[in-house]
Amino acid sequence: MSTDLVLTYVGFFMMGAIALIGAVLAVSQRNILRAALGLIVSFIGVAGIYFVLEAEFVGVVQILIYVGAITILILFAIMLTRGLMQGTTSGHNSQWLAAALLAMLLFAALALVALGTNWNVAATRVSSDLIPKIGAELMTTYVLPFEAVSLLLLAALVGAIVIARE
């Protein structure tokens, strides 16, 4: 094995473990604030996976949008809606056992497909200057979805303000 491959494996397992541990914390913690902190850890792990996959731009966007913006939004919402955590109720509802069973069944099905399919993998190297190309593609091939998404963001912004206003 070359050093490159070993490093890739190390990075994959480290970042994958971080993502999974954070995710488990996020869905299992009774204290919603701790769950949100677990979610941040999970997002950072996923960003690391993007770096391992040599999609640096998406990794940086993941850190900026998910770790920087969405979790801060979630933390704000938690601070504004205190009161549920003080009681003795558990964080999970009565159907949690069925939900766990369903999740495990789905994982088994997905694993069967992932391992059983012959993926037509092309082992190509990624060139280092793809980021300018992402910008060019967004302004040419994907300009219509790009504009649609910006309109959607505007609508979401206005909608969020209208809904949350006193």
């Binding site: 993502a19 549920l84 964080g91 369903l102």
Partner: peptide, 19 residues
Amino acid sequence: AALFCIGLFGALARRNAIA
């Protein structure tokens, strides 16, 4: 797949809307 299933469990089993 593992991450998706953990998220699915969270979406189905949690009480708090934010969770």
